[in-house]
Design a protein around this nucleic acid. Structure first.
Lengths: 343, 343
DNA sequence: CTGTTAGCGCATTCAC
DNA sequence: GTGAATGCGCTAACAG
């Protein structure tokens, strides 16, 4: 019986409704309440009492205490997320996708913002202490992340990151496919004289996109100029100008990202070269505040789908399925706009 | 004693370390472990035993189970967040700020993505079932949000949203101050012939920025053209062109946001009007992929500070402090770049 | 068909 | 100084 008042502890300011309150109101036992509310009552509890329980629960506004249930089940239905993506302008879509997919299975996201490997370890520790059922690590922008001590205590996934040792399960955008698709956009429009402005080699994405690009070129038996450029509008402006003023101007340029593409388009405008009339341009990222504005054909980053896939994998692993090491590639959507013209 | 094996329940796949394990390893009682690890041991537990406990805890990798603690304390140290901001490109900073400030006080964010009033109520219910200590509602982009039934069960704050009934505590950007500052940027540079391109009146921000603008103009005893424009680059392009081709061209234009400003600058370029030489332009939002690129002077959105303030207020409320109804205005940072020139 | 019991892991009395 | 007992709210097993 819990009729005795709390012993010596500070009295709760405003006690919440518990299953005991519902049981008393419905004139049944707590087990009956649990049975009814969890759908295990049929053939066990009389229809009459079932109704009484439901009515009482509703009237009282009873909400089963998930903390108590978690303690008992040794399962919190909580997914821990360590991320840096909320800071940046993009990538929030991963959180959105993850949240939504998780909610569909009655799971919630416990989010920690962290930057730097040291803090990551602490963050994971904090999440583990909260008894999260699984872990998602999303440091942002396809970086490398080497799992440490704490990672591995529960099922865990790397999101938009790769494990250099190849032991972890990673969900990443298909950069090779994206690079291939970007180039294919130009190839399929009949272009053969193509230049590629790549990002910085330090970034994982750069090499992969380049590989996809080369694959596409090899499919048509062609070759093209590859220029290490950078990620910013200035870089695109500089290299774009050089390309357009040079001896043999390409008819199409594949850019490292949309900012670079914007720079190229600006250079073209200055040089009096019409896009897409005389020059076709392809970007990457589908940057929300650039690509649509510039009517730029580009390759999107499937952030939301990545978040969804990560949660799906994680939930399966929590359910006991084995987590395969390696990378799960999420296809990058091709966004066709008006900056490419057939020739 | 818990020496008897679990009764009939599915055995935990990999039992975690509990305080009992630590106690046994250190040769003391569980209470001793609790006392030591919570800093209540001095003068109660021998230094020798204290050391033994700490050593054992470290060696075993003991992490106190926060779920159990939450159940006992009736306090989860969890802050529920209902938001839509992760979807959009901006506003993620609010989550970042909130996460960081919360973490400083050993609190974590439980995030639910929701759009639409109906789902909000459900989301809050789910969060309440998780026994969150407080609630933050951040529907995004300064909209109106009327608290429903569930809101109010625990301390709650509206973030980047206002309560039309004025009952809730809201944390919002100081839009009046921002509008004032934007105009002041031009006024202080000596401009008197100023045009204002406002956003759509349906948005709360529009009216407030306008009020700030008018306040600034009244300070110098001036008046100016106010033109309802919109939020996009096209709108800026259209209205900018009209203004520049018109009879008396202004020397400065305050824009609804950075996208509109970009449109205006584009119109200026087309009309052969030099910015800032012949025309000064001010934007709003400090849009990360526009403002810096265009060297645009603008007013920032203090997203991160807002998230921080919301958590601070919430934690204070959870600690027992009264939550004052009304709006807490977070100052909007003035970002001076090169698009304004003195005349 | 119902009510009682036990225990999830923790912190806190209160006897020893 | 320490250890046994208690209860947070819940559910599953078991005895009535």
């Amino acid at each position: 019986m819990r009729t005795t008042p709390g012993t010596g502890r500070a009295a709760p300011t405003n006690r919440r409704i518990t299953s005991y309150d519902v049981a008393r109101a419905a004139g049944v036992s707590r087990s009956a309440v649990s049975l009814v509310l969890n759908g295990r009552a049929d053939g066990v509890i009389s229809a009459e009492n079932q109704h009484a329980v439901r009515a009482a629960a509703k009237r009282l506004g009873y909400r089963p205490n998930r903390v108590a249930r978690s303690l008992r089940d040794r399962r919190t239905h909580l997914l821990g997320v360590v991320t840096d993506v909320t800071s940046g302008p993009y990538g929030g879509g991963m959180i959105t996708g993850a949240t939504i997919r998780a909610a569909e299975s009655d799971h919630l996201l416990l989010v920690m913002d962290a930057r730097g490997r040291q803090q990551d370890e602490e963050a994971i520790g904090a999440l583990l202490a909260r008894q999260v059922d699984g872990l998602i690590i999303a440091p942002g922008s396809l970086c490398e992340w080497r799992p440490g001590e704490a990672f591995g205590q529960v099922p865990g996934i790397l999101l938009d990151a790769t494990d250099p040792d190849g032991r972890a399960t990673c969900v990443v955008s298909d950069e090779v496919g994206g690079g291939h698709a970007a180039t294919r956009l130009l190839l399929d429009a009949g272009h053969r004289d193509i230049a590629l402005l790549t990002g910085l080699p330090a970034q994982v994405a750069t090499g992969r996109r380049l590989a996809g690009h080369e694959l596409a070129m090899s499919e048509v038996g062609g070759a093209c100029r590859v220029i290490t450029c950078g990620w910013d509008i200035d870089d695109g402006l500089r290299e774009g100008a050089r390309l357009l003023d040079g001896p043999d101007r390409p008819t199409g340029i594949v850019c490292a990202n949309d900012r670079v593409a914007a720079g190229v388009m600006l250079a073209a405008a200055r040089a009096g070269v019409d896009v897409p009339g005389e020059l076709s341009v392809v970007g990457y990222d589908d940057d929300p505040s650039i690509a649509a504005q510039l009517d730029l054909s580009t390759i999107g980053l499937p952030h939301r789908a990545m978040g969804e896939r990560a949660v799906e994998l994680l939930l399966a692993a929590i359910a006991g399925q084995r987590l395969e090491p390696g990378e799960l590639l999420v296809p990058a959507p091709v966004v066709e706009r008006g900056s490419v013209r057939a020739r």
